[in-house]
Computed example of a mutant assay.
Amino acid sequence: MAHPTMFDEDDPYLARVREICLALPGAAEKISHGRPNFFTRKVFAIFGGSLKGDHFAPVARNALLFLPDASERAALLEHERFFVPAYVGTNGWLGLSFHVIGGVERVDWAEVAELVDASYRNTAPARLVRELDAGA
């Protein structure tokens, strides 16, 4: 049985996340478990998620899930806009809640790009990371 779609294609947060993610070398998008996933060989960002025990929590449904550097994880969790998502959180992933931040204009999109960049570097093949660095 296929998962139901759990996002709105016209979501302005998704549009910005998609723009950031798909600008990276070798990045592509697929829908998995009802949500947009951005990947090279491995997934490096997911739009939307859930909390353990609450699959419909607003804080997670409208969020960016990413894999931060392990050394930064604890510091990020000190801020209310970050959370540990269900399923992938046990593997070190975090979520950035756009719901907590507020409107699209209030999001620090440079910070989002940095989080996506770190997650990409933690998951992408070395060849693609070199390509990213060569283009920077």
Rank of each mutant, 00 (worst) to 15 (best):
A124C: 03
T90K: 13
A70R: 11
P125E: 14
E72N: 12
S97A: 05
E19Y: 12
L132R: 15
A126D: 02
S119T: 09
T5I: 15
K52N: 08
G135V: 09
E72H: 11
S50P: 12
V129Y: 09
Y13S: 07
V59F: 11
M1P: 09
R61P: 00
A23D: 02
G89S: 07
K30E: 11
G26K: 02
L51Q: 04
L24D: 07
L67H: 14
H55R: 15
D11C: 13
F56Q: 12
L51T: 01
A57W: 03
K30V: 12
K30T: 13
N62C: 01
T90R: 15
P36Q: 15
P25V: 13
A23Q: 02
V88C: 12
Y13V: 06
R73Y: 06
N37G: 05
D69H: 14
E131V: 11
E19H: 14
R73I: 15
L24R: 14
S119R: 03
H99S: 06
P12V: 05
E29M: 02
S32T: 04
A86H: 06
D108K: 04
F66N: 00
P25D: 09
A15D: 01
P85M: 13
L67D: 08
P36W: 06
D10M: 04
A124F: 04
R18V: 01
A136P: 06
F98Q: 03
E114I: 04
G92L: 12
R121V: 11
V43D: 14
G103K: 15
F44D: 01
F7T: 12
E80L: 12
I31Q: 01
F82D: 01
A70W: 08
V112E: 00
V116L: 02
R35G: 05
V88H: 12
P85S: 10
K30I: 08
V84L: 11
E29H: 02
T123Y: 03
R41Y: 08
N37P: 04
A2F: 05
L96I: 09
A75L: 09
A45T: 11
R73E: 07
C21V: 00
P12T: 01
A124H: 00
D117M: 14
G26Q: 01
A2V: 11
A126L: 04
G26A: 05
V116D: 03
A60C: 08
D8I: 14
P85N: 14
R18M: 04
E78K: 15
R121K: 13
A136M: 12
V17W: 07
M6H: 07
F44P: 06
A15K: 05
G89I: 02
V84I: 15
R121G: 05
I31P: 02
L51Y: 01
V43F: 10
P12K: 04
L22H: 06
C21W: 00
T40S: 08
M6F: 06
A124L: 01
R127D: 06
V107P: 07
N91P: 00
W109A: 03
E9R: 15
K30N: 08
A63L: 11
G26M: 05
P25N: 10
L96E: 13
E111F: 05
D133Q: 11
N122F: 06
G92M: 13
P68I: 09
E78F: 10
L24T: 04
